[in-house]
Amino acid sequence: MPLSLEWPRLCTLGVDGFLVQFGDRLSEQANRAALTFRAALENQNWDGIEETSTSLVSTYLRFDPQWQTHADLRVMLKGLLAQQDWFTGDLPTGRRLWRVPTVYGTTLAPQLDEAARVAGMTVDEAIASVSQSRVRVQTIGFAPGQPYLGALPPAWNIPRQTALTDKVPEGALAVAIQQLVLFSVTTPTGWRHIGQTAFRLFRPETEQPFVLRPGDEVIFVSTSPETLAQMTRDADGGATSEVIT
């Protein structure tokens, strides 16, 4: 992809931040670049850097302008950006692969049929397609610990609903625009509710309040309502994880 002429782009955000943008629309390469560049930035341990994060296609950093001037930091960022092609680099290590038991359809997730129809699949094809996709946490946002995951196969490039669903429960798996969202809170949404998990994503009372991190990968393994019911007492809802090497 001939991205190098225009991207990455470096701009300031507010009085004390920089944003390194790797594109102006969501793409696999731009998301990968944002994650990889953030990991490299964290490894620099530069003075005055207070926080870094990623959005879908960008890396953000907040700093203390009394420690580090905008001009100096801009030079340092440009230097780091020039060190490699961030669009094709290896993803950071320490990420995890999660297998999350998911009930597709039934009364627990009533919009599977509709979503399959919009995507041009039978219900069985839709379950096979989503449950066999290994998707990555592209960013966390909207609510604490809540992941946006992708990318699904192109058939899932379906629009959001025009009307909002009043309420989907915590642990709901919803689909739109080739992405999945796993809801960390009960909320209204325009995304179609196709699966239900018992996975608690935000646990403010524990040492590890946020379960998923950007870059983690997830497989939403199909399971029965009976099996899921037995897993609801466990905060992980039967989910297991392993470190990706």
Binding site: L13, G14, V15, G17, L19, Q21, G23, D24, R25, L26, S53, S55, L56, V57, S58, Y60, R62, T139, G141, F142
Partner: peptide, 30 residues
């Protein structure tokens, strides 16, 4: 049609009806 981006307190969003919205400490992150 912009992709969602990082938000910081103080950002002035222009919402769909053209009215500015100044974000404060408890704002969303993107």
């Amino acid at each position: 049609s912009v992709v969602s981006e990082v938000i910081v307190p103080g950002d002035v969003q222009i919402t769909g009806d053209g009215a500015p919205f100044v974000l404060l400490s408890e704002c969303q992150t993107t």
